[in-house]
Amino acid sequence: MKTDELLTLLSADTAPVRPLRRMLSVALAIGFLVSALVMIATVGMRPDLAVAMIEPRVVAKLSVTLLAAASSAVLVFRIGRPGVPLGRTLRALLLPAALLAAAVAIELSVLPPDHWKASLIGRNALFCLFFIPVLSAVPLIGFLWAMRAGAPERPGWAGAACGFSAASMAAFIYAFHCPDDSPLFVMTWYVIAIGLVTLTGAAAGRRLLRW
């Protein structure tokens, strides 16, 4: 086919353009709603939520996960768009990490060492490892589906960003149920769960987001 003929072919394709940003917004909204409903309909919010919300450990847990979800969502919205710089967006990911590190440091300074192990292991570690990925499923599938309209230079990294963002959102939602509040618990099990989903996203991205 000659290039001129290809041009004619391309301009004859009048299928409506689907803006990446709009598709990601739809995926984000649906993913958040579905995950929140699944959490509420199955395990439910913690019964003492109203009281717990003013407990510093709970505030830290919700803040870290919300900050991670927000900063990684910004990354997801930028990474599929060629020519859009990512430097500041990537640096913003350090904010939730720094906040978590600070919370861990404070926890270690206020908690007697013989309580560290119990706080780290918590009560629901395995369920946390299971349920954060479950809650991540719909947001991750949605982000990957939307990202196929994008043109990420590194498909694996774009998939990882989708996974990290989906899992952070899921972790934020799960935090409203989770009875384990110690930053030591969050640093361990939340991070492992989010890491697993991030790796899944990276593997999926390498396959699905190539162009």
Binding site: M1, T3, L6, L7, L10, D13, V17, R18, P19, L20, M23, G80, R81, P82, A149, G150, A151, W211
Partner: peptide, 14 residues
């Protein structure tokens, strides 16, 4: 030609 098809199919990312 590859670039032309890509920029056509990916123009929603601009």
């Amino acid at each position: 030609q590859d670039v032309l098809i890509a920029l056509h199919l990916k123009r929603g990312s601009w």
